[in-house]
Design a protein around this nucleic acid. Structure first.
Lengths: 236, 236
DNA sequence: CGTCCTTTTGAACATTGTCAAACACTGTGG
DNA sequence: CCACAGTGTTTGACAATGTTCAAAAGGACG
């Protein structure tokens, strides 16, 4: 098997906040033990419950994190370049809590968890960067939980659309980045319910044609959605 | 105002995993700037959205973490001695995402967030301990989210009872540690729904008399609840 | 005892999920 | 190019789940 990440990928990874403060030698040490793979869509990268052998970094493509129980399954989050996932399991040397599968053709870096833990124990810049990253992850999940517990499915969809609208910088029309069935699962509802929820938002100027969403009156939608910095703001 | 934590409280705090690896001088430095207060029940300790001025440590009593939006409110978690809360906000120097209020008479230590961040930046043992703590917190919230998204309210209650049953070490009968209305909110349902859910678990040998719960046939209840290490196990 | 609060109960209602069928879209192979 | 299969989406009817509102019952406490 190929061992060692191609040096052409170094800059992307190094650019991550997580690795920015790390000593050069440590970084190279990590990279040498790791490797990069290209995956087609719909490939299972990790399975919940398995031991966390690798820290994953998505370099391109899209990965969905999901969980299942008793025959049911739900999308917990989607991961986009460039970022790590399942950092907490790696650090704690504990089983994955979520499964991961590629949604599109994706390029993923795999760093052996043991190496991450070793460097974490000796490189203080890395340890501090991990803290910041984990704190961010933690706050994101808390926000997601507030979204789930405090809002109806219609409100969750409305706020989701507003967030996408912001992220794609305010054009009145944009494309959904997720299949509707997965979006439904992510938002904690069934595809049928999502379909009806889209209908329900027509009253606030939301138009849907396939994967294209038009937000004709942002203020009107926001008046209904009532977005909050403490739930919807990803940057804090 | 009284400044500096009484030395009699040092051992409790020092015993926390979070402070175990820290240099003595750093620990004393942190403690000198902090203080301890006793609060009666139903006191608001922090309000979501406020800047995170203090890292809190609960020494005795019970504290509920809650969030609200658009006139609704939900209990996100309860905190018991001895543990910290709102660590992530302190580290990120970001606003609290949750409010905290005492449920019982409680003794709480307050460490200025700036001091925590200073020590975090210089004491590597502390930084590493924070990582472990945050990773634990993160995994707990992910589990809570799985609980919410994958289970019905009846299943959530059943698994909650099993967890309590374990925690209080298997006696067939035990006391709820939470008022029912708060338990309902914590489990993501209304008090009325919780009341009916208890009725629904009678079929599996659950008896309720006031705050006293009897689990007459653990296996039968577990057969319905299907507890999972990846959702219900707090220690991993 | 009376007051306040929580819990329980009942009935109506709202929301969400399930099932089945129709429809739309995509890509394949003839 | 078209027919076709396969998949995802939408729609409708219905069932299950959860919420709301109102009222009664129970407990705690002065």
């Amino acid at each position: 098997m190929f061992v060692g990440m191609p040096e052409s990928d170094y800059p992307d990874v190094r650019g991550l906040h997580l690795f920015a403060d790390m000593a050069d030698t440590r970084f190279e040490e990590l990279m040498r033990g790791s490797y990069v793979q290209n995956f087609p869509p719909q490939v299972d990268l990790i399975t919940e419950g398995d031991p966390s052998d690798f820290l994953h970094i998505i370099l391109s493509g899209t990965v969905a994190l999901s969980s299942s129980w008793n025959g049911r399954e739900t999308v917990m989050a989607t991961v986009r370049p460039i970022s790590t996932f399942i950092l907490a399991a790696t650090i704690k040397d504990a089983p994955y809590l979520m499964s991961a599968k590629t949604l599109k053709k994706s390029r993923v870096a795999l760093i052996p968890s043991q190496d991450v833990r070793n460097v974490f124990a000796t490189d203080h810049g890395f340890a501090r960067a991990i803290v910041t990253e984990l704190a961010q992850c933690y706050r994101s999940v808390v926000k997601a939980q507030k979204d789930l517990k405090l809002r109806t499915s219609l409100e969750r969809l409305a706020n989701y659309l507003l967030r996408q609208h912001n992220r794609l910088d305010g054009a009145t029309t944009f494309e959904l980045t997720l299949e509707k069935r997965r979006l439904a699962s992510f938002l904690g509802m069934t595809p049928e319910n999502l379909s009806r929820a889209f209908k329900g938002l027509q009253a606030y100027g939301v138009e849907v044609r396939g994967n294209t969403i038009a937000i004709n009156d942002r203020d009107d939608l926001a008046k209904f959605a009532k977005p909050s910095a403490l739930i919807d703001d990803f940057s804090s």
